[in-house]
Simulated assay, not measured.
Amino acid sequence: MTRALVVIDMQRGFDDLAFWGPTTNPACEANVARLIDAFAQAGEPVVVVRHDSRHPDSPLHPSHPGNALVDAVAGADAAVLVTKNVNSAFYGDPDLHAWLQERGIGELMLCGIQTNMCVETTARMGGNLGYDVTVVLDATRTFDLEEQIPGLGVVRRTADELMAGTALVLQGGGFARIATTADLVT
C-alpha cells in the first residue's frame, strides 16, 4: 500500500496568539519538519494543505501574511498543494481524494494545525473514505477553546485537553490510529 504524508495548515497566521489564544506542543513544527524529511528521503509523497480563510479578519485570509506556509513546509518538495476554505482537506482544490486515488495511495499520515479542527475533520473523512489513517499527534497543535453552548453553559477546554480528546475519539471511534513522530521516524 502506498502512503502519503498530509501536512495540514502549517501557516504563519497560527503564530498570532493574540488572535487564537493559548496553544500547546511547541515541538509541532520541528516534528512536521522531521516527517517531511523522512518522507522525502523515502521517496514518498508529501501533500501540503493550505487554509485560505474567507473571513477578511482572519490571519489565514489570502490577503494577510499569515496565509503563508511556515518555512519548514514552504521549502518542502510537495507533490501537490491543496487549498481549501473549510475544515476538511478533502474539500479543496485540487480534489485530494481523486489525486490520492489516481496514484493508488491508500495510507495517510496526517499532521498539522489544528488538531481538533482541520486535522480531525480530515482524519474522519479519510477513514470514512476507506483510507488507512494515522494522526501523528505530536506533529499537531491546537489552541484553548471556550464557547457558550446551549444547554451546557460556558464550556472550556485547554489545548492539551482538546488534543487528548481528539486522539481518544479518532482512535476509539476507529477513524484513525494515533502515533508519534518517533514511531514513524527512526
Rank of each mutant, 00 (worst) to 15 (best):
T158A: 06
H64V: 06
D132E: 13
A164C: 06
M109N: 00
V6M: 03
E102L: 07
V154R: 15
I149E: 13
L184P: 04
A159R: 08
L170H: 07
V136R: 00
Q171W: 10
G21Y: 14
S63A: 15
A74V: 06
A79C: 05
E44H: 00
E147D: 10
R157A: 14
T180K: 13
V82L: 12
A176T: 06
M117L: 11
T23M: 05
A38T: 11
M109F: 12
E120V: 05
L69M: 12
V73G: 00
L145W: 15
P45T: 01
P59N: 03
D37Y: 01
N128G: 13
V119E: 02
P94N: 12
V32M: 11
L35H: 05
N25H: 14
F14A: 02
A74I: 04
F19G: 03
L168F: 12
F90M: 02
V80T: 08
G104T: 06
S88E: 08
A89F: 03
T186C: 03
L35F: 06
A164Q: 14
C118I: 01
T134S: 13
R103S: 06
G172S: 05
T140Y: 04
R54G: 11
G151R: 02
G21V: 08
A98G: 06
Y131H: 05
N85A: 13
G43L: 09
V47E: 02
Q114R: 10
V32N: 06
L129Y: 13
W99C: 03
Q11E: 14
A159T: 05
Q101G: 07
L81V: 13
A30W: 07
F90H: 04
Q11I: 14
G173L: 07
R3C: 05
A159W: 09
L108E: 01
Q101H: 15
S63T: 14
E44P: 00
D37Q: 13
V7K: 04
D71E: 15
P26R: 13
P22C: 09
V49N: 01
F175W: 12
D16I: 05
G173C: 06
L145H: 14
P22L: 12
V49S: 06
T134F: 01
G165S: 11
F143K: 07
F19R: 06
V135C: 09
V169N: 15
A72D: 07
E120F: 02
G173Q: 10
Y91M: 12
T166Y: 08
V185L: 03
E146T: 15
N31K: 13
A30S: 11
D144K: 04
P56V: 13
D183P: 02
A79P: 08
C111E: 04
A139I: 10
H51A: 04
I178L: 11
R3I: 00
L137D: 02
S58W: 01
G104I: 10
I178P: 00
E44I: 09
D16F: 04
D77N: 15
E107C: 08
V82D: 12
G173K: 10
H51R: 01
A40E: 14
P62V: 07
V133R: 01
M109W: 10
G165Y: 05
V70F: 06
A182P: 01
A27C: 10
G104P: 09
T134R: 09
N85G: 09
G106Q: 12
E29V: 12
E44T: 05
M125W: 14
H61I: 05
Q171N: 12
D9A: 09
E161F: 08
N25Q: 14
T142K: 02
L137E: 07
S58C: 07
T140K: 03
